[in-house]
């Protein structure tokens, strides 16, 4: 398993050709407590940069983007009842979607933990 980060403040935990995607602690802190999370349905094919989910705080809606090309396998159903899990445990129980990679070579363009730490300064 390898952990990657994106400049959109998302993380991917990759295992074979599947990845779990969520937002980083930094992003969770910036968004504040979430009140609603909606993921696109399983089976949706997305290109890198397209929305896989929307998260809403009191103040604003934010898209969660596909970091690489692939297919949504599963949304985190627990977030429908308790979207604040994303705020309290963004890199654990607050994961957002499971994703099947269609072009794993795209992972090379993402950051590791060290690079992301430097990116957010």
């Amino acid at each position: 398993m390898t952990l990657y980060f994106t400049s959109e403040h998302e993380w991917l935990r990759v295992d074979g050709d599947t990845a779990v995607v969520g937002i980083t602690q930094h992003a969770a802190d910036e968004l504040g407590e979430l009140v609603f999370v909606e993921t696109r349905p399983a089976g949706t094919q997305v290109k890198a940069g397209e929305a896989v989910a929307v998260v809403e705080s009191v103040k604003a809606a934010s898209d969660i983007y596909a970091p690489v090309d692939g297919e949504i396998v599963e949304g985190n159903a627990a977030l429908a009842d308790d979207p604040s899990t994303v705020s309290s445990d963004p890199q654990g129980a607050g994961w957002i979607v499971k994703f099947r990679l269609s072009n794993p070579a795209q992972l090379d363009g993402l950051m590791n933990a060290e690079a992301y730490a430097a990116f957010i300064g």
């Binding site: 504040g32 407590e33 009140v35 705080s57 009191v58 103040k59």
Partner: peptide, 10 residues
């Protein structure tokens, strides 16, 4: 200030 440490909901 948009918010303080407690956040908007609290």
């Amino acid at each position: 200030p948009l918010q303080y440490a407690d956040g908007i909901m609290a």
